Computed example of a mutant assay.
Amino acid sequence: MAGDDSQSGVRAATEDDPRTEDELLDRAREYAAAVDLDVDLDSVSWGVSRRAKRRAGAAVYHRAEESVTIRLTWAAYRSFGWDEFTDVIRHELVHAWEFLEHGESGHGERFRAKADAVGASRHCPSFSVPRLQLLCTETGCDWTVDRFKASKTVTKPEEHRCGACGSRYVVEHVDTGERWRTSRGYEGARERIGEEW
């Protein structure tokens, strides 16, 4: 049975799990052929990303060639393990289907319907812990958004509002618990956090 190595965040592989990138790609191709989805797999190529930090997978459409490349993130696979990672493969296959059938893909109603049909999540899970979170300040509103970079919603929160109820929100630095609601607050928190940023 797969376990979780809490020191590294890497799930212990089972005997049948792919152990190399090539094995992962071979297994993903084999798995994709068994998914009940009418997608032209001859127009789909596969690759592994070692650079991605948040996305578990990506489908890239090559309009001129009418083909799709599905990139699977090695760190996400190592974090999730094969059984959980199959959802990522199904999710990216739905994107491939949309690209090849409709020339575009998103996470709208058409995507949702097809994802539901093959048991795929509407959004791929993130495999890394966010650096920052936006948290609504309105009592009863549980809106939160993860952020990995210091975008304007992080550095100038006074210029933005909660995506659910329109109230103000607070930004929290996950590792330290530092919070701020203004650009001045951001600057002070950044200075206090220092190297832990």
Score class of each variant (00 low, 15 high):
residue 51 R to L: 09
residue 61 Y to E: 06
residue 39 V to M: 01
residue 143 W to A: 01
residue 95 H to L: 03
residue 151 S to P: 00
residue 123 H to R: 12
residue 29 R to P: 00
residue 116 D to H: 11
residue 140 G to S: 03
residue 96 A to W: 12
residue 40 D to K: 04
residue 173 H to N: 07
residue 47 G to Q: 07
residue 183 S to N: 07
residue 19 R to Q: 13
residue 109 E to K: 11
residue 54 R to V: 14
residue 21 E to K: 08
residue 11 R to K: 09
residue 81 G to C: 02
residue 11 R to Y: 14
residue 100 L to P: 00
residue 189 A to G: 05
residue 166 G to K: 00
residue 9 G to R: 01
residue 4 D to W: 15
residue 166 G to N: 01
residue 176 T to I: 02
residue 114 K to C: 10
residue 50 R to A: 12
residue 161 R to W: 12
residue 45 S to I: 08
residue 158 E to G: 01
residue 52 A to P: 02
residue 35 V to E: 06
residue 67 S to N: 05
residue 97 W to R: 02
residue 189 A to H: 03
residue 3 G to P: 05
residue 20 T to L: 00
residue 32 A to Q: 07
residue 86 T to G: 03
residue 149 K to D: 15
residue 45 S to M: 03
residue 151 S to K: 07
residue 62 H to W: 15
residue 132 L to W: 15
residue 28 A to L: 01
residue 164 A to E: 15
residue 120 A to R: 00
residue 165 C to I: 04
residue 32 A to I: 06
residue 44 V to T: 02
residue 116 D to E: 13
residue 49 S to I: 00
residue 17 D to Q: 01
residue 196 E to V: 09
residue 94 V to Q: 00
residue 80 F to N: 04
residue 31 Y to R: 02
residue 134 L to Y: 12
residue 130 P to E: 05
residue 144 T to Y: 14
residue 34 A to Q: 13
residue 77 Y to H: 07
residue 149 K to R: 14
residue 89 I to E: 04
residue 50 R to E: 13
residue 110 R to W: 14
residue 118 V to S: 04
residue 33 A to W: 14
residue 174 V to I: 10
residue 2 A to I: 13
residue 13 A to R: 12
residue 140 G to D: 06
residue 37 L to W: 07
residue 12 A to V: 15
residue 49 S to V: 00
residue 108 G to M: 05
residue 159 E to W: 15
residue 116 D to T: 09
residue 103 G to T: 06
residue 172 E to F: 11
residue 59 A to D: 05
residue 110 R to K: 08
residue 161 R to A: 13
residue 51 R to M: 09
residue 84 E to L: 09
residue 179 R to W: 12
residue 165 C to E: 05
residue 153 T to V: 15
residue 134 L to G: 07
residue 122 R to C: 10
residue 29 R to V: 11
residue 84 E to C: 01
residue 25 L to M: 02
residue 171 V to R: 00
